[in-house]
Amino acid sequence: MASFTALALSGFFILMVHPRLYWGHVGNDLTPALLTLPISNNYRPEELQSRMVFTEVPGAPVTAERNFHIFNQNGWARSLHFLAAWILVGIGAIYVALGVSSGHVKRDLLPSGRELSPRSLLQDLRNHFSPRVGSAGVGPPYGLLQKLAYTSVMFVVLPLMVATGLTMSPAVTAAYPILLDVFGGYQTARTIHFFGFTVLVLFLIVHVAMVIATGFSRQLRAMTWGSEQ
């Protein structure tokens, strides 16, 4: 939880330094963006100076100087981001290894084929919006939507965050250029990394809301020390 918060916060600070997202290998203040986020005042294209073309061909690449001061806290933010990532990947690997070997993943987390029918999905969805909350027990058995949320975060979103994170590393992509091909470029990986961040933050908000709705201290005790039943 601490690692997750550290990753989310430092990630947000890192994004503030260059609040634009792109598709492909290239993206900067002189190229069009997919998305410009209003989270900092660092993108000021009209203040770039001494524009110069490299060739006289129309549409040729240009360069321009950025001589104004930008908000940049990446020194600590990126180091904290990686430290938290190391810890989270370590914990995650232990959790998955223990979960698979103890049968927890198969027994409690993966939804069975029978459960995945549209009817039971709809039923579980309806239950979530009924005013009657608090009926959930601690720990397994989990509900269907709960199982789907946990497994997709664990086996889809988090691995995707690690893979897109590694694709942003010049040393890693030199060794494994396939990462650039899989995601279609450094900037695409960065953009997917941002979408993954959004999904994880939403998951965390819903997860914490459900824990509080079903008895905060009881659930927390069950998650950490184990339930007494």
């Binding site: 290239v26 002189l30 490299f54 690449p61 360069t63 321009a64």
Partner: peptide
């Protein structure tokens, strides 16, 4: 990481605009 792997090299057509930052 295997040492001395080469970073990707692109085509001439991939050359893009590039801002100059820091000391100019």
């Amino acid at each position: 990481l295997p040492a001395q792997s080469l970073a990707r090299e692109y085509d001439y057509a991939d050359i893009s605009s590039v801002p100059a930052i820091g000391t100019t």
